[in-house]
């Protein structure tokens, strides 16, 4: 499936059956990212299909706040 990784909108083709597997394949921590399909945030157990258009949103901000 086609996965767009924000904020740079890097596009990757990834083979994964679920959200949890997708993040694992991309080597991304579950607590540092949200996976979004359309307008919906997805939990890690949600099944994915080849036709899905997925976005991965990072959630970490840094520096001294």
């Amino acid at each position: 499936m086609r996965v767009t990784i924000l904020p740079d909108r890097e596009v990757r083709e990834v083979d994964a059956r679920s959200v949890g597997e997708l993040l694992k394949t991309l080597g991304l921590h579950r607590d540092a990212h949200l996976v979004v399909r359309g307008q919906d945030i997805l939990t890690s157990d949600v099944s994915l299909s080849e036709a899905d258009q997925i976005e991965v949103w990072p959630v970490i901000s840094g520096g001294r706040r």
């Binding site: 904020p7 949103w57 990072p58 970490i60 901000s61 840094g62 520096g63 001294r64």
Partner: peptide
């Protein structure tokens, strides 16, 4: 959404 460009490599991250 993007990170502060000056924070890249910061210890907190």
């Amino acid at each position: 959404l993007e990170e502060c460009p000056m924070a890249k490599g910061a210890k907190s991250l």
